[in-house]
Design a protein around this nucleic acid. Structure first.
Lengths: 151, 151
DNA sequence: TATTGTTATACTCTATAACTATA
DNA sequence: TATAGTTATAGAGTATAACAATA
């Protein structure tokens, strides 16, 4: 992307603009932090979805993440190729694949979560810890209870 | 995109996930709000950049928005086709195009800004006005002073 | 018939490279 | 030579449609 000279005052107030650029910056910080561990931001999302939970089918994992099952196929192909995830046919329903983290996957996830936390810390550097918590809380409410009032 | 069943607790805390989904929701609300006025979210960004300011070249406008000049060409093609923006060669440097809102463009912008404000109001419904202001302020600091401490 | 995983394909958004006209 | 606008092209990311295996 071209260098951003900074928008006029109209755009600096604009929520879509602010959210998009904040998301892009956070995504770049995360990508850099994950690179040493050989995974990308979306792959961390998949691994977090698979972690600490009863085994899941590809479709269930995709629904959790809010992505299409065809998108999940490509993500799992990559993670399986790196030896971080395994796929087995489900004995109870052989149409399904049971997807799980491998041992290497759990270890990579542990390191990646620490790297992610550090990237978030850098992202939040310019605001106070209290403001950072309010930011996270406000986004959670907006994303997960978009129709409710407060919690 | 597939229906989102909701992620596990790990992802609900994840800033990239929260920012991405918040941005997508805000973008959808804005797109719906702008549809009656015949423009898209990115086109509103271009028009806001061109508004209330001395005339600008395409390249200057692109740099303000942080997009490539080739991307700006397509955006301006669309806006010019709708009669909302005009392009004229710059008399002082005929390599440049001076880009300006037309009268219709200024009127559409006025209506679009009101629609955008209403979309933001809907987006922010689940949080208090005070939290909403803190959210906007925190994002501004993070996006525009990513290396500074507080303001 | 319906569902799961898969493949092929297409669409959106954006960038890079190369062309043109001007400087 | 360098720059502004343009065009052609390519890549990333994602979705839809169609197919095989299974239910």
């Amino acid at each position: 992307m071209a260098r951003n000279d900074g928008p006029g005052p109209e755009l600096r107030e604009n929520l879509v603009y602010l959210l998009k650029h904040a998301q892009q910056r956070m995504a770049e910080l995360l990508a850099d932090a994950l690179k040493p561990h050989g995974i990308e931001g979306r792959e961390l999302g998949v691994m977090l979805t698979l972690a600490g939970r009863e085994p899941m089918s590809q479709q269930q994992a995709a629904q959790r993440l809010g992505i299409d099952r065809t998108t999940m196929v490509a993500l799992l192909d990559a993670l399986e190729g790196k030896g971080l995830v395994s796929r087995h046919p489900d004995a109870d329903d052989r149409r399904r694949n049971v997807v799980e983290l491998t041992g290497a996957g759990r270890e990579t996830l542990r390191l990646a979560m620490a790297a992610s936390a550090e990237a978030e810390r850098v992202f939040l550097t310019p605001v106070s810890p209290r403001t950072a918590q309010e930011l996270r809380g406000a986004l959670q409410v907006i994303v997960f209870q978009p129709d409710g009032r407060d919690s």
